[in-house]
Simulated scan of single mutants.
Amino acid sequence: MGFKNQFFKVASAITGGVSSFVSVAVLGEFLGSGDIDLLVGVLSAGSIAAASGWNTVRLHKKQKKELFQKKQLDILYLAAQHRGQLTPTQVALQTNTPIDETKEILDSLSDAGVMELQVSHKGNLVYTLTDEVFLEDYMEKIG
């Protein structure tokens, strides 16, 4: 996990904690005042804010998953163009993706059985497409 993601999670937790503390304090004040209409309004606004926040988090996760899947497809296409073999460095440079993210995507393809991780005779990590039929068909199409 990158520094930005960790920072975002910590900042969100702190903000959520402070927000909860303030909400409880304000709610206590409203309960003490006896103004039921104001209390209902505050609770309604809080519920709407919480639902909105949850929806934003859910949407972000969906977009992140779709982007990850697109990058997987891009790497598979790239592998087909390079006779089925790629190194993490090669993918990172050609897709302009950080090496740690590239390695995570390649590992996910390996875990799914689509690519196989091998070590070259020089000691380099090489990911190879496991579907030779697909690769042969693709190579025939492009000449």
Rank of each mutant, 00 (worst) to 15 (best):
V42G: 05
Q90P: 06
F7D: 03
V22N: 01
S20V: 11
K141P: 00
D111W: 12
K62I: 14
M115G: 01
F30K: 01
T56G: 04
Q6N: 05
A80E: 04
A13S: 10
G32D: 13
L39E: 08
V57M: 04
T95L: 14
I48W: 05
G2V: 03
L38E: 03
K4C: 08
K122W: 00
A11L: 13
A25L: 12
T128C: 12
G84N: 11
F134N: 05
Q69P: 05
N124A: 03
I36W: 07
I105G: 05
T102N: 04
K122E: 03
V119E: 13
L59N: 10
G32Y: 08
W54I: 14
L86D: 01
G16K: 15
L27D: 04
M1D: 07
D35Q: 10
F134G: 08
L125W: 07
V10A: 00
Q85H: 09
G34C: 09
L59F: 13
Q6F: 09
D137K: 13
S19E: 11
Q6L: 07
V91N: 01
K71I: 14
S19R: 12
I75F: 12
K71P: 05
Q90L: 12
K71D: 13
K65E: 14
L38F: 03
G113M: 11
L39Q: 08
V40P: 04
H121A: 10
E104P: 00
S19A: 13
L67W: 02
S47I: 15
Q118F: 06
I36D: 05
Y77S: 14
V119I: 15
H60T: 15
A13H: 08
A50H: 02
R58I: 01
D137W: 09
K71W: 09
R83E: 13
Y127R: 01
I142A: 03
G34D: 11
G123Q: 01
L125G: 04
N96K: 11
A49T: 06
S23F: 15
T87F: 07
S108T: 06
Q90M: 15
I105S: 05
D37N: 12
V24P: 01
E116C: 01
I36K: 10
I75Q: 09
F3T: 01
I142S: 04
A112S: 14
K122N: 02
S52P: 01
L27A: 12
L135P: 08
T15V: 03
F21M: 11
E29M: 12
Q81C: 05
F30Y: 02
V133L: 14
Q63P: 04
T95Y: 00
K141A: 14
S120M: 03
R83D: 15
L86V: 10
D37L: 11
